[in-house]
């Protein structure tokens, strides 16, 4: 029982990470039809930025962690904005080329991180509280899970509130549904593109800092390894659906944890099988619009 609780909570924590990556991917895809392969790099860069901050503070305080998160989010957002303005926008409406550009960017940036921070992982430490555990239903749960879950829920609520209560949010929601009609109402939808890239980049940057806390290190491959699961989550959840991404993140991560423990490390394979099964039953994903 206590093992199961630990696995479930850990799964939800990992799902929170997936969601932080997948939310941006899904929003960007939903609005712009762009699959962003460079999203993992936003995450990695956010993680390194956070590490640089905490390294300089080097006190393992909460302030240092909060600052890392803020800087990680800001760096993620800025890089994402630059990507959109300099690369994606030039290829407006040319979806295949847009994907190719992000592929090239992903290859180049991972190599650049190698060059700057080295191929070996750098180790990250946070507030001591995160390494401690608390008893929940008989299981000893490491506190970092709670941090992951708490921040991801906050990000989810923040994005939902942004989408619901701001004019940009309105434009984005309308644009996901019918982009050309948004322009036909006199709205420059490209502004919204930059905004979703910024939101996605910030979420990925936060995800990077949290991932480095959770795994205890940052490496140039950190983003790419999470990105693949985020892709799977986005497809299972239905491209363009934030809620779908949230649900699929939890389902995928929990299933992965359970399979890893009870079926001798087959978590990754089970996730791929789940993907295949979902596609066979519902090609548009859980919450995706039916084509």
């Amino acid at each position: 029982m206590s093992t199961l609780v630990l696995l479930l909570v850990t799964g939800v924590g990992l799902g929170a990470l997936y969601f932080l990556v997948a939310s941006g991917l899904s929003l960007i895809y939903g609005l712009m039809g762009v699959l962003n392969f460079a999203h993992g790099s936003f995450l990695t860069l956010g993680a390194y930025a956070g590490w640089e901050v905490s390294r300089r503070m080097s006190d393992g305080s909460w302030l240092s962690l909060v600052l890392s998160l803020v800087v990680g989010a800001a760096v993620g957002a800025l890089v994402a904005i630059a990507t959109e303005l300099l690369l994606i926008r030039r290829l407006y409406e040319r979806h295949v080329e847009q994907v190719l550009v992000t592929v090239g960017l992903a290859l180049a940036t991972v190599a650049l991180f190698d060059g700057i921070w080295g191929t070996d992982a750098v180790y990250v430490s946070g507030p001591a509280w995160l390494d401690e555990t608390s008893g929940v239903l008989g299981a000893q749960i490491p506190h970092d899970r709670f941090l992951l879950i708490g921040v991801a829920v906050a990000v989810l609520l923040g994005i939902v509130a942004f989408l619901r209560f701001t004019r940009f949010g309105l434009v984005i929601r309308a644009g996901v549904e019918n982009r050309s009609m948004v322009t036909a109402l006199g709205i420059d939808v490209r502004m919204a593109f930059t905004v979703v890239f910024a939101i996605g980049g910030a979420a990925a940057g936060i995800g990077g800092v949290l991932a480095s806390q959770y795994f205890g290190y940052v490496s140039p491959q950190l983003g790419a390894s999470l990105l693949i699961f985020a892709f799977i989550v986005t497809v299972i959840g239905g491209l363009g659906s934030l809620l779908g991404a949230a649900i699929a993140s939890l389902a995928v991560a929990v299933l992965q944890q359970l399979a890893n423990f009870y079926a001798s490390g087959t978590g990754d394979l089970v996730v791929v099988l789940l993907l295949a099964a979902v596609l066979l039953v519902r090609p548009s994903g859980l919450m995706g619009a039916r084509a």
Partner: peptide, 21 residues
């Protein structure tokens, strides 16, 4: 512009459709 198949935003409320415009 009033397009052929209305193209209202189905997931938005009427008020939101108007506010967007």
């Amino acid at each position: 512009y009033v397009p052929e198949d209305r193209e209202v935003f189905g997931s938005l409320t009427v008020a939101e459709n108007l506010r967007l415009a």
